[in-house]
């Protein structure tokens, strides 16, 4: 028993270390967004909101926020709808093998480096003469979000009982009616959750955006621009705002799944 206790202490210590390692960057970003000294080193002497003021006085900030919101909305709606449809189709396939293949194929874009996805899209868009800009980036965002929407939706649909649909059909409901009255109310929270996940992924997407958006701005592109120009503490302020929005989106996304489980 003593051995087991010691090993669980070790285990807990390991978990704490890993969490510290994963969340140290987040803590540092938020901490220095309020820190007085622009040198980004310890010890921190005082607190200030100057960096937030400076971030918002950046003329690019407004455009960046607007474009990021547009892209996130497009990704949530388009990736949400496409991914939900795909997952719904896959789960109704009878062949287990076919389901595996389709699911695996849909996850492929998640394993290919974003750099390669980004440049291949840039090449394809230029081949059909589409100038770089928000539109091209939006198509890229939807692609990047799709695998994660499919994965989440697939998991949530696993508990879906298709026999109630058949009951509705037997009672004379048209397929459309059955979908509207039965399927949709049941899976709506799941779709909403997956769509919010897509919005979060889109909000944070940098690489594919960078190769396709041309001279336009998004929040991550703005951060990149500031970072390339040198150390500027307002980067931490912009980054903290980005983090805050991400946490909100993922939080609501999880909440929708949690409420469904109750």
């Amino acid at each position: 028993m003593v051995g087991r206790q010691r090993s669980s202490v070790l285990a807990a210590a390991y978990v704490v270390l890993v969490l510290l390692f994963l969340y140290l960057p987040v803590a540092v970003t938020v901490m220095f967004s309020f820190a007085d000294s622009p040198r980004l080193s310890m010890p921190i002497e005082g607190l200030t909101l100057d960096w937030y003021r400076r971030a918002f006085s950046n003329p690019l900030m407004g455009v960046a926020v607007r474009n990021s919101v547009i892209l996130a909305a497009v990704s949530a709606i388009a990736a949400g709808a496409l991914g939900a449809g795909f997952a719904f189709g896959v789960i109704r396939m009878k062949s287990r093998r076919l389901r595996g293949v389709l699911l695996g194929a849909s996850l492929l874009p998640a394993v290919i480096p974003l750099l390669v996805i980004g440049i291949s899209l840039a090449v394809a868009f230029s081949a059909i003469g589409w100038l770089q800009g928000l539109r091209n980036a939006a198509f890229g965002h939807v692609l990047v979000c799709l695998p994660f929407v499919v994965l989440t939706m697939n998991a949530r649909l696993e508990t879906f009982d298709f026999s109630i649909l058949e009951a509705a059909r037997d009672l004379g409901a048209s397929p459309f009616r059955a979908f509207l009255d039965i399927t949709l109310p049941i899976i709506r929270p799941s779709i909403l959750g997956a769509a919010l996940l897509a919005a979060a992924l889109s909000l944070d997407e940098f690489v594919v955006t960078w190769f396709n958006i041309g001279s336009q701005q998004t929040l991550p592109v703005l951060v990149w621009g500031l970072v390339r120009r040198g150390v500027d503490p307002s980067i931490n302020a912009v980054a903290s705002l980005l983090l805050f929005s991400l946490i909100c989106l993922v939080g609501i996304s999880n909440l929708s799944a949690w409420r469904r489980r109750r």
Binding site: P25, V26, T29, D204, E205, F206, P220, V227, L242
Partner: peptide, 14 residues
Amino acid sequence: FSGYLVRIYAWRTI
């Protein structure tokens, strides 16, 4: 979901 660029930049700060 804690920011791709954000985390890389934070490691530079650390």
